[in-house]
Design a protein around this nucleic acid. Structure first.
Length: 324
DNA sequence: GCCCGTCAAGGAGTA
DNA sequence: TACTCCTTGACGGGC
C-alpha cells in the first residue's frame, strides 16, 4: 500500500494578489539615488513575498494541501554581488519564523527548486562560487524558518560541456568543495536535455543524494525509456532521507513543444505511473508542475475522484489499493 | 488596463 | 567568436 500526496509549485491561480515573487531588478535598484531607501524598498518587497507565502500555506491548509514548493524569489537581489553586505535575514526574522512555525504546526512539507543557473559541475570558479551563494541563501531562508534543511533543494547536475561522462565526474569532484551543510539540502533531478535518469542515478548512488524522478523529463531525455527498470534504484536513493520520496509530475504541452509544461495534468498518464509504483514504498509525494498551478491540482483530484482502486485519505492524499 | 520589451542567470545551439 | 534562444514571473513604459 502506498500513500500518494499531491503538491504544487510556488504560486496560486485561485488566491488573488498573492504573488510570493515580486521583485526589483538590479537596473531599477541602481536608479534609486538613496541606497538605504532602495534597500528598505527591497525589504518591503521581501516582506510582502513572505506574507503572501504564509497566505499560500493557509490557502493550502484550507484545501488539505500539505506539500508545496516555495518560490526562490522571496528576497529580491539577496544573492546579488552589489548587496553582499545586506543583512536581509535579520530584517525578516519575524516573517520567516511565522512561515516555519505554520508549516511545522500543520505538518507541511515545503522545499525549494533553485533555478538552473546553480551549476555545481562547472570548471569556472566564479560560477561555482555564485552557485554556493545561491545555495547559502536558500539555507539561510530555511534556517530563518526553523526548518530542518535536509533535502529541501532540488538541483540539476549542470552543464554537459561536450563530454557528458567527464561532466558527471566534474560534479563528483566539485561535490567535495560544497560545504556539508549545503550538501545535506540537495536532491538531484533528471533533466530534459542533458542528464538522464541513468546519469543521475550514477551520481546519486555514488554521493548518497536522493533522486527526484521527473517523468516528463524522462520521456524527453532517456537512455532506456522504460523507467520502471530503474525504479528500485530511485527508491533506494531515499533510504536515509527523513522525508518521503519526491516526484515531479507534468504533461507535455504538445508534440511540437514536448518539453514545455501543459496547463493541466493528463490523469491517464498519472494513473499509469501510480499503478506502476504502488506498493514499492510507503509514501510518494507528487509535485504537480503545471501552468495552472493549484488549479491543475484541483482538476487532477477531480479527474481521479471516481477512479477504481483509489481510496482518498483527504482532499489531496490517496491510497492505491494495489493488492485488490 | 492591455501590450510588449526588458530583466536576470548559464548553457546549448547555430551562424 | 558572436549571436539567439531557452525559462520564469514580474516590472514598467507606451498607448
Amino acid at each position: 500500500m502506498t500513500i500518494f500526496r499531491l503538491g504544487y509549485v510556488a504560486m496560486s491561480k485561485t488566491l488573488k494578489n498573492a504573488s510570493p515573487s515580486q521583485t526589483m531588478t538590479h537596473t531599477r535598484f541602481q536608479t534609486i539615488p538613496d541606497r538605504e531607501a532602495a534597500i528598505r524598498k527591497l525589504e518591503a518587497i521581501a516582506r510582502s513575498n513572505l506574507h503572501n507565502t504564509l497566505r499560500l500555506l493557509k490557502h493550502n491548509l484550507a484545501h488539505d494541501i500539505s506539500f508545496f514548493r516555495m518560490s526562490s524569489k522571496l528576497v529580491p537581489l539577496a544573492t546579488h554581488e552589489d548587496l553582499r553586505n545586506w543583512r536581509y535575514i535579520s530584517a525578516l526574522t519575524e516573517e520567516l519564523k511565522a512561515i516555519g512555525d505554520y508549516a511545522k504546526a500543520n505538518e507541511m512539507r515545503v522545499d525549494f527548486h533553485p533555478d538552473h543557473f546553480v551549476v555545481i559541475n562547472t570548471h569556472d570558479k566564479e560560477i561555482f562560487q555564485r552557485a554556493m551563494i545561491v545555495l547559502k541563501y536558500h539555507f539561510m531562508l530555511l534556517h530563518g524558518m526553523g526548518i530542518d534543511p535536509t533535502h529541501r533543494c532540488v538541483l540539476h547536475l549542470g552543464g554537459r560541456y561536450q563530454d557528458k561522462e567527464q561532466a558527471l565526474e566534474s560534479f563528483i569532484e566539485n561535490w567535495a568543495l560544497v560545504p556539508s551543510s549545503l550538501q545535506k539540502m540537495i536532491m538531484i533531478e533528471n533533466d530534459d536535455k542533458s542528464f538522464t535518469l541513468e546519469d543521475c542515478l550514477y551520481v546519486c548512488e555514488k554521493l548518497n543524494i536522493p533522486l527526484v524522478f521527473d517523468l516528463h523529463h524522462h520521456l524527453a531525455n532517456h537512455s532506456d525509456k522504460n523507467w520502471v527498470n530503474a525504479w528500485s534504484r530511485v527508491v533506494n536513493t531515499w533510504k536515509s532521507s527523513p522525508l518521503p520520496l519526491k516526484m515531479h509530475i507534468s504533461t507535455p504541452k504538445s508534440e511540437e513543444k514536448f518539453k514545455s509544461h501543459a496547463d493541466f495534468i493528463d490523469p491517464e498518464m498519472f494513473l499509469d505511473f501510480v499503478k506502476n509504483v504502488s506498493g514499492t514504498i510507503p509514501q510518494i509525494d507528487c509535485m504537480i508542475e503545471a501552468k495552472q498551478k493549484d488549479e491543475a491540482l484541483f482538476r487532477l483530484v477531480n479527474d481521479l475522484k471516481d477512479a477504481q482502486d483509489i481510496t482518498w485519505v483527504d482532499n489531496t492524499v490517496f491510497q492505491w489499493n494495489s493488492d485488490q
